[in-house]
């Protein structure tokens, strides 16, 4: 059995995830997503991964969510979008996806039940940033390079997609 903060964070995370999926206004969904990420950071801390918890807050809840907020601001959604969204979210639409998700959840739960219990000592050891850094720049240095390649590719493609075509057609070039 687990301790109280873990259970609280888990409940908050599950409720926030359901709220994200069912909101009609994107900004509300975004705020619930921030709540979900913060509670996940608490869960990481409870699981003995403080470095991952800090990164979850700084990068996910900080940088990525600011990116989402920025895009929502630029899209300038109004009342008509909200009404259209409500129209799209008619109750009949949810039946098929809900059945599929419940099937997946049942399969995952059955698999988890078949998992053997932890054979080692039952105590959680906190793995700090030093151990992660030694592991990251020791045997896993190739994956650091891969991550940098991935981020560079994302940067280049975002720049390519977001370039101003009208400016290049009628511009000075």
């Amino acid at each position: 059995m687990s301790d109280l903060p873990f259970i609280l964070f888990s409940l908050v995370a599950a409720c926030a995830a359901i709220m994200v999926v069912t909101r009609a206004v994107p900004v509300h969904a975004l705020l619930y997503l921030v709540v979900l990420l913060l509670s996940l950071a608490g869960i990481f801390q409870a699981l003995g991964a403080p470095f991952a918890a800090m990164l979850e807050i700084i990068i996910y809840a900080g940088a990525v969510m600011v990116l989402f907020v920025f895009v929502v601001m630029m899209l300038n959604l109004g009342r008509t979008d909200r009404d259209r969204e409500r129209h799209w979210m008619a109750p009949g639409i949810w039946i098929g996806p809900a059945i599929l998700s419940c099937l997946l959840l049942a399969a995952l739960c059955i698999t988890l039940r078949a998992l053997p219990p932890a054979a080692g000592p039952d105590t959680l050891v906190s793995i700090g940033p030093q151990a992660v850094g030694i592991m990251l720049y020791g045997p896993y240095v190739l994956s650091v390079e891969l991550a940098s390649f991935l981020l560079l590719a994302g940067l280049v493609s975002a720049f390519h997609i977001g370039r101003n075509i009208r400016g290049t057609v009628t511009g000075e070039a």
Binding site: A13, A14, A17, I18, V20, V21, M89, I93, W94, G96, P97, A98, L100, S101, C102, L104, L105, L108
Partner: peptide, 12 residues
Amino acid sequence: ILFATGLLGVLA
């Protein structure tokens, strides 16, 4: 649970 919820969102 979170993965199933996310899948529900992507599908619906």
